[in-house]
Design a protein around this nucleic acid. Sequence first.
DNA 1: TGCATTTACCTAAGGGCTTTAGGCAAATCA
DNA 2: TGATTTGCCTAAAGCCCTTAGGTAAATGCA
Lengths: 192, 192
Amino acid sequence: MVRVGLTAQRLIQAGAELADEVGFEHVTVSELARRFDVKVASLYSHVKNSQDLKTRIALFALEELADLSADAVAGRAGKDALTAFANVYRDYAHQHPGRAAAARMRLDPETAAASAGVRHARMMRAILRGYDLAEPDETHAVRLLGSVFHGYAGLEGAGGFSHSAPDSEESWTRVLDALDALLRNWPARPTP
Amino acid sequence: MVRVGLTAQRLIQAGAELADEVGFEHVTVSELARRFDVKVASLYSHVKNSQDLKTRIALFALEELADLSADAVAGRAGKDALTAFANVYRDYAHQHPGRAAAARMRLDPETAAASAGVRHARMMRAILRGYDLAEPDETHAVRLLGSVFHGYAGLEGAGGFSHSAPDSEESWTRVLDALDALLRNWPARPTP
DNA sequence: TGCATTTACCTAAGGGCTTTAGGCAAATCA
DNA sequence: TGATTTGCCTAAAGCCCTTAGGTAAATGCA
């Protein structure tokens, strides 16, 4: 009986790679076991269950993404920072579609609160400090940006923008231009 | 042997309701059969397989949503139309979270091309005609709006904005204000 | 109205993924 | 080196998906 040296970390890492190959929704304990050439039951000492595995892949992706974003944003401000941050997001979704999908997975509130998701939110707020928005507008803007980034990655991943002109790359650039313009010119609350 | 009178339409309708109750990802041929008090195999005369069932629920949701949007937008223009359209989207996601998730499902290109998704795109373009954007900016704007609507619904459905101030309702209103302002003031392509 | 055809639902069966319980051998430690 | 821990295994049960082939209800036709 050869020991492969499974650990939760190795499983999650391999799970993330598997997600990128076959899609996050097709990540399965069985397939993971197959890849380690190990029986399925063996994984259950390292991971609670299938749900737990997926959650931990999601948390892993969120961390990874937050680390990349932090690097990209360091030393930048204004549109520069916004673009760098947004591009990390989109590039990650291109290079790691499975992990990106994982990062969009629904987490229960406590898990989410303990996740790197909060770092993302903090970074976004830091970027927004370059545009001066008073609360609650800053929060509205955070939510708008989050929606755009998630939404764009989702639609692009679903093939929404492929095979139609202009190419998605150009739209992305122009969307960022537009968001920058919007943030510099955030409208006052209209008087009814 | 009592006959229940299954049809593809009834299955899809019931499937949509099931999705709203348990989440689209938990819609299962078995559960559907249980609800009709019928054996699982019986469904396979009406629906090709599980994937087919889900796809048809997605198409159903897209149609329903397009019909609602068309009604809401009729007779409106400018911000009025934009708001009406956007609110249909969001209200639908609130009232029918499962169907909304279905509507966000990845479809293969041919299926997507034959779906009500194209009506959605056409309506968006019609609304944008109220803001005068020349191509390719109109397309960029369509993609931005799509991303925001999908993204906001996704994050809200995932509980992203709950239990934090200001409430999601207010953010949504202000996001629409902001999008309207942006469309009225779409930035020219910056000269590098 | 009676018979043939079609159709709706059924049983049976195989295969995959998940999860738990309990066992044996490799690694670790004293 | 012997004891303990730990990593991976077998076995088994449960649920979902899917196909093949059967039976009875509904429908159509003479």
